[in-house]
Amino acid sequence: MKKKWVLIGLLLVFLFTFPLYSTNYLLHIGIITLMFAFASQAWNIISGYSGQFSFGHAAFFGVGAYTSTVLLVEYNVNPWIGMFIGAIIAAAIAFVLGFLTFRYKLKGAYFSLTTLAFAEILRVFVKNTDFFRKTMGIMIPLDINPFWYQFQTRVGYYYTILILTIIITVIVYLISRSRLGFNLIAIRENEDAAQSLGVRTFKNKMIAITLSGGLTAFAGTFYAQYLLFVKPETVFASDISVSILMPAIVGGVGTVAGPIVGSFIVTPLGELTSQMFSNLAGTNLIAYGVIIIIIILFMPEGVVGRYHDWVNRRKKGNKETQEQKESVTS
């Protein structure tokens, strides 16, 4: 048991000291990796633990990005505060989405498609609305001041997203250990059975999706402050929804470490392939497609899930050989 904490400790040391031996370019990769690890972890709550796969988390990401940006640019609201307001609005929207889908018992692929359509609705809406400057997007004026969520170098952004990712991982860890977590897993495994055992399925799913949506918005605000520019095609696009779900799928849905491990595999891999094949477009996306298929075919529980299985089997194996030894000797 202790070994696990040593490992986590080492990882944290690595992550915290990363800026010391990385280059600016690697730091950018690290930032994007952590950002999607964060968002994927938020996604994990409703999709991993509850088994309701959302294909439209860009909706919440975009809401976060636009809320803090509009508040800043139009009303001079500090983006750190705008971040929380964005999260609240995203949570409210998630609540509505959850209500519409869960109340009317949409499950499986129907639920997924609804979330997809939902994100598209938001995208088209923003795209056509003058208040959000339509497709022209909103630019955040350069004003380097950490108090206003802008940093001189990448390092500031890196630590911000690192701390955010750690916080959300702790949150998900606590959820996984809590009553809510057990309920969600029960719902995922067999919703009807869970219901008949007294689990309030509707209420738990609503909590999960609201939490998931609200938390995802933090990543949106971060993205807006990092790029200093938002537009519908970048923050509400289905590409974002894909980038949010990929890490958890690869790393392991419904595990605490899954989205983190997954993002560390998927994001740098994307960079690596697009660099190796820089004269051939889209090869990194071919790689993504292949990875998705391989994972679903051979490792649907993800890398971390597979690791857990391995550990459990070993434990069982040890226990059995122990019992055998005892029965022989006694």
């Binding site: 490992l7 990882l11 690595f14 690791y307 070993r314």
Partner: peptide
């Protein structure tokens, strides 16, 4: 088994 994780990170 922890070695596998270490291996992965390495």
């Amino acid at each position: 088994m922890k070695r596998l994780s270490l291996l992965l990170f390495a």
